[in-house]
């Protein structure tokens, strides 16, 4: 049983990992044939991954309704939303637009999904403002440096801010857009590059650990 439960999966990760890695450096007919088959297959496997999210969403809301848990009535709307989109897709044959204009699917995208998804994230704007007021504390030199960089970017990205900069600091001869360009092209590049190199080393090591079966947390417990 251990063979089927553990060793074969570990062999799969090792073989696919090594073959894929080798195919990158050795481009010949066999390696191209191998990678082409893998590409097509991997594309299909991943097309099922979202079902994990779907099943767990449906399970939790179905249970809420079945147990009549607090606020179970709202859970019905999860299914209403899902069915609205799926039925309109079925009616429209998966097409969003025809020569006659929007199909029911295109309509649901434009007026339902677009409004919901857009607003969900737009709400964050309010929180960033209240956080800026309540929690942005300049208590150390490091925080001050962060503040100065943020201040210049927030100010200089809009025309009104550029006008204010020119009025106050125009005598320096440096426009705020030039200062922003310098921040983005020099110190920010240095900061990000350090992070980037660090992360890349970590990612390479993790990938090697996965291929060689050292890192296997993703497989779950026995």
């Amino acid at each position: 049983m251990k063979l089927i439960k553990k060793q074969i999966p570990l062999a799969i990760v090792f073989i696919t990992g090594v073959f894929t890695l080798v195919s990158y450096y050795v481009p010949n007919k066999t390696s191209i044939d191998y990678i082409e088959t893998m590409n097509k297959w991997q594309n299909i496997v991943v097309a099922f991954a979202f079902l994990l999210g779907l099943v767990s969403l449906f399970f939790s809301h179905y249970h809420k309704i079945a147990r009549k848990a607090d606020g179970w009535g709202y859970s019905i709307f999860v299914f209403v939303g899902f069915l609205t989109i799926v039925i309109s897709a079925y009616v429209s044959g998966g097409r969003q637009m025809t020569d006659a204009g929007l199909t029911p699917l295109g309509w649901s995208f434009k007026y339902i999904y677009n409004a919901l998804s857009g607003t969900m994230f737009a709400v964050l704007a309010f929180y960033i403002v209240s956080t800026a007021y309540r929690s942005f504390r300049i208590k150390s030199l490091q925080a001050f440096v962060l503040f100065v960089a943020a201040f210049i970017l927030i100010l200089g990205k809009v025309p009104l801010g550029q006008i204010i900069w020119d009025l106050a600091l125009g005598w320096t001869g440096a426009g705020v857009d030039q200062v922003i360009e310098w921040i983005m092209q020099v110190p920010a590049v240095a900061g990000k590059r350090g992070i980037m190199i660090g992360i890349s080393i970590g990612a390479i090591v993790t990938s090697l650990k996965i291929i060689f079966g050292i890192e296997k947390q993703y497989m779950g417990k026995d």
Partner: peptide, 16 residues
């Protein structure tokens, strides 16, 4: 966005 950007700067400065 002009005014909103200035608002956030004003808020950070005011609170500090």
């Amino acid at each position: 966005l002009n005014l909103a950007h200035l608002l956030v700067l004003a808020l950070i400065l005011t609170s500090n």
